Computed example of a mutant assay.
Amino acid sequence: MIKMQSYYERQGETATKGLIAIQVAENLLEQIKTYSYADISLSGGSGTISRGGTTFNWQQIVRSKTLATAGDAKQVEVTVSWNDRWQQPQTISLVTLRTQY
């Protein structure tokens, strides 16, 4: 029973930190919605944010794309990384597209 409890505790912690990382990435992508197409910089950005006793590093990469149906677009990818309790790196990435129209 003790081994099971320890296992579930670790899995719960991993899931919680993963959800926090997804929220961080979603919030950064939501901010992009407030920018005009022209104001979305191809240089991207990066930073850190602390939540729940863990430091999350984020990086935003913007790529220019040409779509057959929508013309010019910008692909925005946000990657959030952190170390788990064993100092193993964990990462999630979310991607969206913004068109001029």
Rank of each mutant, 00 (worst) to 15 (best):
D72A: 15
W58P: 00
N57G: 12
L42A: 10
T66M: 10
Q31R: 14
Q59A: 13
S81I: 10
Q59V: 14
S64K: 10
W58M: 01
Y37D: 02
Q60A: 00
G53Q: 13
T54R: 06
K33E: 08
V78F: 09
T34H: 01
Q59I: 14
D72R: 14
L29C: 07
Q31F: 11
T55C: 08
S50L: 06
Y37S: 02
T34I: 06
G45T: 03
V62A: 03
T34R: 04
S81V: 10
S41F: 06
V76F: 03
Q75N: 02
Q59R: 15
Q75P: 07
T34Y: 00
A73M: 01
Y35H: 13
Y37M: 01
D72M: 12
T55K: 12
W58R: 00
I49R: 08
F56V: 05
E77Q: 13
I40A: 06
N57I: 05
E77L: 09
T79M: 02
S46C: 02
G45Q: 09
S36D: 10
G53H: 08
S50K: 09
T69P: 05
I49E: 08
L29W: 07
K74T: 00
T55W: 04
S50T: 15
T69L: 12
K65I: 12
Q59M: 11
V78H: 01
V78G: 06
F56Q: 00
Y37P: 02
I40R: 01
Q59F: 04
N57M: 06
L67Y: 09
S36T: 15
S46P: 06
S46N: 12
Q31G: 11
Q60R: 15
T79F: 02
T54A: 03
A70Y: 13
D72Q: 15
I32Y: 05
G47F: 13
G71V: 04
G53D: 02
T54K: 08
I49L: 12
S36V: 04
N57D: 15
N57S: 14
G71R: 04
S50A: 11
S81A: 10
K74L: 03
V78M: 06
S81N: 09
G71A: 04
S46Q: 14
G53V: 09
D39S: 15
Q59L: 14
S64C: 06
V80W: 02
Y35P: 01
S81C: 04
S41Q: 04
S81Y: 04
L42W: 03
V80N: 03
L67I: 10
I32P: 01
E30H: 07
S64I: 07
G52Q: 11
D39G: 13
Y35V: 08
Q75G: 08
F56I: 02
A70S: 12
K65S: 11
V62K: 05
T48W: 09
F56H: 01
T69W: 03
T79Q: 08
S50E: 14
V80C: 08
A70H: 13
S36Q: 13
G53T: 05
Q31D: 14
R63L: 09
G45W: 06
V80K: 00
D39R: 14
S41E: 01
T69Y: 07
I49W: 00
N57R: 15
G52R: 06
G44Q: 09
I32K: 05
K65N: 10
